[in-house]
Each structure stands twice: as C-alpha cells, then as structure tokens.
Simulated scan of single mutants.
Amino acid sequence: MATADAQRKWRDKHRFVKSQLNVMARKITHDGLKEISETFGLHGKAEAVAFCAYVVRAMKQKGDRDAATYLYLDALKAGFKRDRDIFSP
C-alpha cells in the first residue's frame, strides 16, 4: 500500500485528469479483468476496466442506430441484473 505522502503526491499531480478508483470485487471479476487484459494486450486490470467502459459506451452509441446491437446490449444488461449477486462484492 502506498504511503500517505505518495498518495498525496499522486493526487496533486493528477488532480484535474484522473481520479483514483478503489473497489472491492469478487475473485471472478478480478479473474475476468486479467483475462481481458491478456486477450486484448492491455497493461493490467486497470486498463481492462477502462477498455470495458469504452466498449460499453461504443455499444451503447451503436445501439442508438442499430436495433440488433441495442437488443444484444439489453440482453447483457438483463443477464447481469439477473445474476448480479455472483458479480457484486
């Protein structure tokens, strides 16, 4: 764990462009992020999270113009909500 000094320095340096995200997640989520990172050649789990957010935003935008993408994303959302307890911390 970083020292308080190191954390303050990081926050001061990145105050306007980044915000730190510390979350508790189940092992299945960590394993999934590691797999995504390896599959797509990303730099670790943090970049995998950013990639997942990017993909969801892209699918949402495409879903605004394409019914099949909208329905697919809607099915993914319903599946996640149905099985939420498996993925939630």
Score class of each variant (00 low, 15 high):
Q61K: 15
E47F: 10
A25G: 01
N22S: 08
A68W: 01
D64Y: 04
R15G: 00
Q20P: 02
R82T: 05
R65P: 00
R15N: 05
Q7G: 00
G79V: 03
A2I: 05
F87Y: 15
W10P: 02
L21E: 03
L33D: 04
M59P: 01
A48G: 04
V17D: 13
P89E: 10
I86C: 04
R57V: 08
N22A: 06
A4C: 02
S88W: 11
R84G: 02
A53Y: 05
V17C: 06
T69Q: 08
V17Y: 10
V23A: 12
D66M: 01
D12M: 08
D83F: 02
T29P: 00
K45E: 15
D74S: 13
W10G: 02
L33Y: 04
H14L: 04
S37I: 15
L33C: 06
M24F: 07
S19L: 03
A58Y: 12
R26V: 00
L76K: 14
M24C: 00
Q61V: 14
K62M: 03
G44R: 12
R82S: 02
E47S: 14
R15L: 06
G63C: 12
M59C: 13
I86T: 13
G44K: 13
Q61E: 15
H30C: 10
K34W: 02
D12E: 12
L33S: 05
A68C: 01
K60C: 05
R82N: 02
H43V: 11
P89V: 07
A53H: 09
K9R: 11
S19Q: 08
M59W: 10
A2P: 04
T39F: 05
V49A: 06
K13Q: 06
V55Y: 10
D31H: 09
K13C: 01
A6M: 05
S37K: 14
R15Y: 04
S19H: 04
A58M: 13
Q61I: 14
Y70I: 01
G63S: 12
L33G: 03
M1P: 06
K77Q: 11
L71T: 06
K34C: 01
A46Q: 09
Y72A: 14
R84H: 12
K34H: 06
R65C: 04
T39Q: 14
I86Y: 08
A25D: 01
L42G: 03
Q20Y: 02
V56P: 02
D66F: 00
K77S: 09
L73S: 10
T39N: 13
K81V: 07
V23R: 10
A75S: 11
K34L: 03
K9M: 01
T39C: 09
A53D: 07
D74C: 05
F40E: 07
V56C: 08
R65H: 06
K45I: 11
D64M: 13
G63F: 13
D31W: 05
Y72S: 12
R65L: 06
D85F: 12
S88P: 01
A2W: 08
L76V: 10
R26G: 03
A25L: 02
L21K: 10
A46W: 04
H43F: 08
R26C: 00
D66N: 12
T39V: 13
K77V: 08
K34P: 00
A78H: 11
D85K: 15
A48E: 05
P89C: 03
S88N: 14
